[in-house]
Design a binder for these strands. Structure first.
Lengths: 367, 367
DNA sequence: GGGGCTTGCACAATCGATGGTGCAACTATT
DNA sequence: AATAGTTGCACCATCGATTGTGCAAGCCCC
């Protein structure tokens, strides 16, 4: 209120304390013992810094040291539970290391990915986690040119180490689980099991590969017509289901869906029918979403092990000798109607007030 | 590959082009006409910058200009669809203005909020959107001291302009909708309608106020026992439902739930029972989640108008004369089984490949 | 009491980009 | 041809923090 002035600098503290700026700097960044600053001076400066609410200008420090203390996460998007839990977990891990997480999204667009990476580099991030990038190698090239340590997560590149889910294994287990779930009623025929969603990215390819392999093994055939790639778009997925329904007058008995984004497309289709229309449907879906797990038909989900993947990625990025190889992390099969704990459970919540009259509104509401 | 060297600077370009660093700088930052640099020199430098892959060091520029081009969003958390869509929308809006979004989360902890704000200030963010902060005024003080423009979103403060949802109005509409939905079967009695979740924050208070007002008006009474605040914790919510069930041997006929996080707590409770146990339940819930909207019982949701709130917040933060007042934005009542479009629908997806054999895996899978 | 060692700090260059100012070399004018 | 005005650019201080180096004062010892 009183002092709306600018931020304090080491020069202000220097003037106030009577020491030189370099002494102040040394005290504040902890190198003062090494520089043989006396305990007395240090205490004085620290007290002053505290009373003046000093905070170091990170841009200046970053400029001088050519590192910023920022750790970047490049994401395709925020708005689904897989990526939002990834961001949440990443944030916690970076903070635990005493650094500052910076998250940016690039919309699954190779060009935006490169530009965002350049932008992060422009801010001198110290490390970059490239997650779900459509063109990891393009981003790699930019990072390498800038001498920036980086690692791919979720989608692999060929030029940098990559930590990804074992999508093939996940696909096998998911497909098998769906088939078995259906078989409890009546054996599933090959043409009754479809896969919707997916694109030409590595994850989709691996998932498709597992799908086909298991179908062939367990059901004896694997007709191409059961493959319906619709990209990562909810609306395209809805259109695909509508087209299917218009053609066949019904849905397949069992559907594997390539991501929760596509499953949202299915919701859009669902909205046109009562729940009863789906009572015999069995769905398998990549990526776990707690609410999706409780839809009115069985939804078997594959949860990627976000904590393990990130933990591995942190190890790798710390290792200067890490090779450009792929590290697989096993995903988890989640049965229908399962509410898993998530990263939010680690946050402590305040104790709730005892119930009672708490109608003390602070804003008068326009009647 | 070849040149793993460091990043190029204006001094490199200066040497290569034969012009002075300041000329290079002027050309690259666009101020060259004002500085009467010839078209010829400009083209030369620009071509050079392009061929050398020059990108400006934002820290240096930020240091000199004392602004960074960063726009900060302080969030309590990422991992639910309300906040993740907020982050997604924020990101798009900031990018549309040609600036760089930086998102950080503070776990709904007042202390972490202040530290995160200080950290963002240390990186010289130009503007800060304080979203869902438990202690907006504490953050305000820090911002003000640093001369940083800021605005509260989602939870109001008293010292800075705030854009929030009209939670009272939302609560009234939601409560009424739930009551009417139940009444279609058989009139609801006051003690059959509960509210779970919520804390002592402004949003919870307003929601509770609306809940009580409507209950009193439509149902004639509003017993305190129907108020079950459980904070913003899934597990506490689960415990509350378990305790209720242990006591009463059933659930209330109708439940209003203060946030999707609490609804996740309800899922944890649900997992112990078959869907049939919930066939007569009616739920109203704050914040919209597409999958939650399709749970096997009617879920009426309130969707906060994230785009409108952020748009308003951007207007306000651009207005130097903005007063510390509250701006209410109407939320939207979402009927059960509704799949709304979200911010992801704005992203373009690549056209899907035609269906076919796409088993060209690039990773050999450990058999 | 003088040489040598330690203590405690100040000085100044530096990181990369910016922008105010100064000044040659031209061109136009009378 | 001398003056005035324009064009085109270079010089240099600056933003705030870091860090290699230098140096005075104090202390020890013979």
């Amino acid at each position: 209120m009183k002092r709306s002035g600018k931020r304090k600098t080491i020069y202000d503290l220097s003037a106030l304390s009577g020491c030189s700026p370099s002494t102040v700097s040394a005290v504040l960044n902890g190198s003062w013992r090494k520089r043989r600053i006396s305990e007395k001076t240090a205490t004085l400066v620290l007290k002053l810094a505290d009373s003046q609410q000093y905070t170091a200008n990170r841009q200046a420090r970053g400029l001088r040291r050519s590192r910023s203390g920022l750790v970047g996460l490049l994401l395709p998007l925020y708005d689904n539970r897989y990526f939002s839990s990834l961001a949440q977990t990443f944030e916690a891990m970076v903070r635990a290391r005493g650094e500052c997480p910076i998250v940016a999204s690039a919309s699954r667009d190779p060009r935006a990915e490169r530009e965002t990476a350049e932008s992060l580099i422009a801010y001198s991030v110290d490390e970059l986690f490239i997650c779900g990038a459509t063109d990891p190698d393009g981003v790699h090239e930019i990072c390498e040119k800038a001498g920036l340590r980086h690692v791919n997560v979720d989608l692999p590149g060929t030029r940098a180490p990559s930590v990804i889910s074992d999508n093939y294994d996940g696909a096998c287990r998911l497909t098998e689980a769906v088939i078995r779930h259906c078989a409890a009623t009546e054996p599933l025929r090959p043409e009754e099991l479809y896969i919707f969603g997916g694109r030409d990215d590595h994850a989709s390819r691996e998932r498709l590969r597992g799908f086909r392999a298991v179908k062939r093994t367990l059901l004896g055939a694997d007709p191409d017509v059961c493959i319906q790639p619709t990209g990562y778009s909810a609306n395209n997925t809805r259109l695909a289901f509508e087209a299917f329904f218009a053609r066949e007058g019904r849905l397949p008995r069992a559907i594997i869906i390539n991501s929760t984004i596509n499953l949202e497309g299915f919701l859009r289709f669902m909205a046109g029918f009562p729940d009863a229309a789906f009572k015999d449907l069995v769905v398998g879906c990549y990526d776990y979403d707690p609410f999706a797990s409780f839809l009115p038909f069985p939804v078997i989900m594959i949860r990627q092990n976000v904590e393990a993947m990130l933990a591995r990625a942190f190890e790798i990025i710390a290792d200067p000798a890490a090779a450009a190889q792929i590290h697989l992390v096993a995903p988890e099969l989640v049965p229908p109607r399962t509410a898993l704990a998530g990263p939010l459970d680690a946050l402590k919540d305040m104790p709730p007030r005892p119930a009672g009259r708490t109608t003390d509104a602070t804003v008068a509401h326009p009647a």
